[in-house]
């Protein structure tokens, strides 16, 4: 048995101090110890993207990252998106554009898209594709997801124009 380590990380704005085995993956920490089961596991080797979360604002695969690597970091998961009973504009866009079917890969998509639209609020089609290219969806065939991203861009722009902070 390897020496457990105590780490501190902020998840969706809440600070957690937890003791983990070094080999614990970040996704297992989030889903297990922290009970944040919105982040899903699809392949555990970094290909499908279902487990994508934001690590200091950057979209990464939490199945190929150790929890100890996140010591001192800020982690953001799908649970942070909807606020005050309202879906986030990206989530709302996914619903309106039918950008999901089984919904298992969706939290990963939402995280990747949130990084993209934070960094680049008016992305080109190529940038959108670059982001979606790292996420596998087996249900939708991507067309409605692409439409959802375009709709989300508009919703976020409208919210900014209206002075909102979404």
């Amino acid at each position: 048995m390897a020496t457990p380590r105590t780490i501190t990380l902020s998840v969706n704005g809440t600070t957690h101090q937890v003791t983990v085995e070094p080999r614990t993956t970040l996704v297992d920490l989030l889903r297990g110890d922290l009970g944040l089961t919105g982040t899903h596991v699809g392949c555990e080797h970094g290909v499908c993207g279902a487990c994508t979360i934001l690590w200091n604002g950057k979209a990464v695969r939490s199945c190929i990252m150790l929890a100890v690597q996140a010591d001192g970091s800020e982690v953001t998961t799908v649970e942070s998106m909807a606020q005050d009973g309202e879906l986030h504009p990206i989530q709302q866009a996914f619903m309106e554009a039918h950008g999901l079917q089984c919904g298992f890969c969706t939290p990963g998509f939402l995280m990747s898209i949130s990084e993209l639209l934070t960094r680049s609020p008016d992305p080109t089609d190529e940038e959108i594709k670059d982001t979606l290219g790292g996420q596998i969806c087996r249900c939708t065939g991507y067309q409605s997801i692409f439409t959802a991203v375009r709709l989300a861009i508009k919703k976020l722009a409208d919210a900014r124009a209206a002075g909102g902070s979404a």
């Binding site: 944040l36 089961t37 596991v41 998106m81 879906l87 999901l100 089984c102 919904g103 298992f104 939290p107």
Partner: peptide, 20 residues
């Protein structure tokens, strides 16, 4: 075409998939 009743639960990561 209507919004799917399944979606809010799925979009917020609250659906009770077996591993949850």
């Amino acid at each position: 075409t209507v919004d799917r009743v399944e979606d809010p639960m799925l979009l917020t990561g609250r659906a009770e998939f077996i591993d949850n």
